[in-house]
Design a protein around this nucleic acid. Structure first.
Lengths: 211, 211
DNA sequence: TAGATTGTTAATCGATTAACAATC
DNA sequence: TAGATTGTTAATCGATTAACAATC
């Protein structure tokens, strides 16, 4: 057990969750930290340390029950306790996220989408209504979203996030190529900086790196 | 100067690059590690350590020339030396990536897109031709891509990456919700696990976390 | 019971921060 | 020159790994 769980540990939890799902699907009922570590490319020690931040889920001499461990990690992550989200910006990225990601499985429900283009305002995407961004305040009043999904152009990101924060949003999934954390210290930003990711990949192909 | 630069440092480089671009755009010609650290929410020490992995780009008593530092980091990342990429899978995600990301600015050029759906095969997306996946080998022969962009469903990811590796691909930008690193040890995978990212965000909204 | 494997403490490793002499 | 700020070494902090007693 551990009071303040580090970000490094938290970021590994969804990965454990995926592997446990996979194991369950292939009919494996029990697994040891050693066997799981071999599959995942970690040390058995690290897995045991990580899990013991949240409690003792295993049994000496036996290992871990896959189904039980999966459900415990799901509970820790909040997969079954849905939080409301709204998305702002229904461009390519917004559209792709909303149709591609299994929000339900991950404890998040998108309640509304906002955009400024008349072609999309009033339509439905994946069963979710698209409103004009002018209606943001009115709809937030009703929905009380805790999560904002920022799929707007960089130029709009700061303005939009400020409006959302004023309306009670506490955490952002930020796809805009911009850091907002410094501007809004009390709020959590989970950044998906695809440009940064691509540049990191590009770096690995440098010759210097191989030498 | 440093022989083996750690991943932690490399992942900060694109972020420095973004901030330097921003500074340059707003007409700032010179910056000290202290001033930059305040903007970025890092320590000045860390910035100096990071940069000195690659060389001494500053000047005592002055700081760093923004334009020079930006171009040096660009060079380190390989932004000006284009590497060939191909994309496999033109679903929502593929489409969004290809139209949204500034590959050119980041040292990567997409040379071809592959999909299996007749509706899209033969079309052009952002000036890039879409081929049937059956033609993968033939086109790879011609293009010799170093980077593979995996925007296929999870079920196809392993099969596709194996084919690409056989055809010379050395690094993947992987959007499939699956880890392939263990299966292909010599190859680099830059994973964009959006599901994991969303779950990490969801975790932060748990009450326990706030207490 | 004996073997296996956990939970947990201690040791190690690596990354971040602090300090300061060098120097522009 | 004096003040500012780097590059770099040393100190600290945190995360990972190793070890092992507890125990199923």
């Amino acid at each position: 057990m551990n009071e303040n769980v580090s970000m490094a540990v938290v970021r590994r939890l969804p990965r454990y969750y995926r592997y446990l799902e996979e194991l369950l699907r292939s009919g494996v009922n029990r697994i040891s930290s050693g066997a799981l570590s071999a599959r995942m490319g970690l040390t058995a020690s690290q897995i045991r340390q990580d899990l013991n931040c949240f409690g003792g889920f295993g049994q000496q001499g036996y290992g871990y029950n896959v189904e039980h461990l999966k459900s415990e990690i799901g509970r820790i992550l909040g997969a079954d306790d849905k939080k409301s989200a709204i998305m702002v910006g229904l461009g390519y990225m917004g559209h792709s996220i909303v149709s591609h990601i299994k929000f339900d499985k991950r404890g998040v429900t998108i309640k509304a989408i906002f955009d400024i283009r008349d072609e999309v305002v009033g339509s439905m995407v994946n069963g979710i209504r698209v409103y004009h961004t002018d209606e943001l305040e009115r709809i937030c009043e009703e929905i009380k979203p805790e999560i904002g999904i920022l799929t707007v152009p960089k130029t709009e990101a700061e303005k939009v996030s400020e409006r959302l924060i004023r309306n009670g949003v506490k955490a952002f999934w930020n796809f805009a190529n911009m850091d907002l954390q410094m501007k809004f210290p009390g709020v959590y930003f989970e950044n998906v900086h695809l440009g940064d990711s691509l540049m990191t990949l590009r770096y690995r192909l440098n010759d210097r790196d191989k030498a």
